[in-house]
Nucleic acid binder design. Sequence first.
DNA 1: TAGATTGTTAATCGATTAACAATC
DNA 2: TAGATTGTTAATCGATTAACAATC
Lengths: 219, 219
Amino acid sequence: MTAIEEVDSSKHAPAPTVRRLPGYHRLAQRLLGEGAQTVSCTTIALALSLDPTQVRKDIAITGIVGKPKVGYEIRQLLESIESFLGWDNVTDAFLVGAGSLGTALLGYKMFNEHGLKIVAAFDNDRTRIGVAIRGVEVLPIEKLPSLAGRMHVKIGVIATPAEAARDIAALLVASGIEAIWNFAPVHLDVPPEIIVEDVHLTSSLAVLSAKLTQKLKRK
Amino acid sequence: MTAIEEVDSSKHAPAPTVRRLPGYHRLAQRLLGEGAQTVSCTTIALALSLDPTQVRKDIAITGIVGKPKVGYEIRQLLESIESFLGWDNVTDAFLVGAGSLGTALLGYKMFNEHGLKIVAAFDNDRTRIGVAIRGVEVLPIEKLPSLAGRMHVKIGVIATPAEAARDIAALLVASGIEAIWNFAPVHLDVPPEIIVEDVHLTSSLAVLSAKLTQKLKRK
DNA sequence: TAGATTGTTAATCGATTAACAATC
DNA sequence: TAGATTGTTAATCGATTAACAATC
């Protein structure tokens, strides 16, 4: 049987690889600003304390082709990562929870350059509703479903207390959202076709604590 | 040669396992509140969409012993996780960067129950200095080194803009800090004995974007 | 040219999942 | 007792790392 390789475009990129790509992008931007034209995996690996082969494989997944002995054209590398991550077409998002974390997230102008545009915020606290935070208006949560449909919003960002998060997730799903960026410390039980990415600060803190506990125990 | 197993207490727990432990703890707390006395891996796995064997192995690392057919004593499980993660002896921490993210972090009372107590905040912005945010005073960054030594502070939390983060990391290391919880989107190049745990929102967002981009492409 | 670097295949490592005896 | 669940060993899976030919 002649092996004709089917290029499986649905093949998922490993999450660890995807997580590292923004770091490469940031470094490439800095180097470009410093006047560099090209960059090699060795340079990237050294700057970010990674293995050069790993960097090469990670970068390869974006589809860019480098030149032996030279490396990658920086502008091309930037574009390649941007298009792979979908940073070139910005997706509208709703933020739910306009507390201090929500406010901090609204302050990240960075997100706009990374494919995410928060177009409205929602809360159930009357004192917060109507106010605009960093140019984004805070609306009553009741308005979310109809607005989500009308504006074809695809991403919901949950920055509510834990207790509210489950209900909010259900509301987002019912409103036709496709992906949830969850900052609440709860497991969201949503249908499998809904994408969920958790930012669990307690998990991150747990890794820090466990390592520190061990380090101090060794002394 | 008789194989006497040396119990290697320096054996590190896998990071993925450590990341999942807080979720088990949260669930166990909830179940205890609902009147349950014991919990099985099957129950936990079902509630958190995980594999029962994985849950069992994760829990085993904390040293707790369960009862076949019954599961684990919930109170014992809670204590076991807490002591493993070092949540029972709270470590003092300094926060650097009293902007909106820093303010949000100061608002997480939760951290106090998770081994982290932010005892002071630092900034270089004169308008922020002197003010107390949620009961924690904001001090000029110059005071950090001497205070860190005097108070034996072990953890530094970096919530500054990216540009400042490298210098702050160096300052923290020079001040005798042992671990850094880094929220700035930069790679910190610190000595190997310093523990660094990164919370890179851009990496998390990248995973979400990449998955969503793929999902939408499939349609 | 010589040698650094890419692209790619193979080997290793570590985490997840499966299998199953022990046990309450 | 019967059967659900633990604890543990083995098999699988996937990511990282090593090896090496191709090439600018």
